[in-house]
């Protein structure tokens, strides 16, 4: 690998190849127009979306598909708000019919305070979805053992949390993320916990294939600028990972020659 090949650096999930390693959420924005502009500024090719009841009392309200267009972005429907495997399967069956594709994000949560993934239920839901031919990217804890179980059960991507959803605390356990990356044969993306650009860079430096974030961009004072920052941060981290960092040393190692001093 040499420095000229950055443009050819792609990643593939469930047979689909992407250039951008930054997946962005579409929640929490002031409006869908800002949302679409932020996704563009992030250079994202995939956006996560949620599925909810249509507001029947006002069918004329703005619709996501009219702003964040499905012909421009690959929609990744999620199961946010689902607490059981059955809820998740029901939601994604509807999402598959609404969108016409089978690439989905599974998240089965344990409680509303932490939104921490319920891994036992997540694994059970994954098996139900795989049996129905869904291609499932799985939001999960940063437990390497469960990550392996998910992969064995047919997950097309492993997406461990860096920190709790919406917390912005950055990657809390770099070792676990690294262990998961090292063992995985499917893409690994840090999903949740990114607060600022350096957090995304750390994820990529650890060897992740990508990063998924929502709140870090949506709740920035200037979401468009933060989206741009995240784009660069992900590229920087990826490039640093590919470049191979220098070894860490306990003591100094002079950059200027010590010979020939006057």
């Amino acid at each position: 690998m040499d420095g000229t090949s950055a443009l050819d650096d792609t990643w593939t999930v469930a047979g689909r190849t992407f250039h951008s390693r930054l997946i962005v959420g579409t929640g929490k924005y002031k409006d869908y127009a800002l949302n679409a502009a932020a996704a563009e500024a992030a250079g994202a090719e995939i956006v996560t979306v949620a599925l909810r009841r249509v507001n029947l009392s006002d069918p004329s309200q703005p619709m996501l598909v009219d702003h964040v267009r499905p012909d421009r972005f690959t929609y990744l429907p999620n199961t946010a708000g689902c607490f059981t495997g059955e809820d998740a399967v029901r939601t994604l069956r509807l999402a598959r019919e609404a969108g016409g594709w089978d690439l989905v994000k599974l998240e089965v949560l344990s409680d509303t305070k932490t939104l921490y993934p319920d891994m036992e239920e997540t694994l059970r839901a994954l098996k139900l979805l795989v049996a129905e031919d869904f291609k499932v990217m799985v939001y999960c804890s940063d437990d390497p053992v469960y990550a392996r179980k998910l992969e064995d059960a047919g997950a097309v991507a492993i997406m461990p949390l860096g920190a709790l959803i919406g917390s912005g605390l950055g990657i809390q356990n770099r070792l676990n993320i690294h262990l998961i990356v090292e063992q995985a044969k499917v893409p690994v993306l840090v999903d949740a916990g990114v607060g600022t650009a350096s957090d995304a860079t750390v994820a990529m430096e650890l060897g992740c294939d990508g990063v998924l974030m929502n709140t870090a961009i949506a709740e920035a004072r200037d979401p468009i600028r933060m989206a741009r920052a995240m784009k660069h941060a992900v590229i920087a981290g990826r490039e640093a990972f590919l470049a191979g960092r220098m070894p860490r040393r306990m003591y100094a190692d002079a950059s200027s020659p010590l010979s020939g001093l006057i």
């Binding site: 959420g25 979306v49 949620a50 599925l51 996501l64 598909v65 929609y75």
Partner: peptide, 27 residues
């Protein structure tokens, strides 16, 4: 699930329970 291609041929009956959903912003 009612496939979109069958909307016109799927008859409704008294007491049916339906969910009508769409994509919205989410993370």
């Amino acid at each position: 699930i009612v496939p979109r291609s069958t909307y016109a041929s799927t008859r409704l009956a008294e007491g049916d329970r339906l969910e009508v959903v769409h994509f919205i912003g989410g993370g």
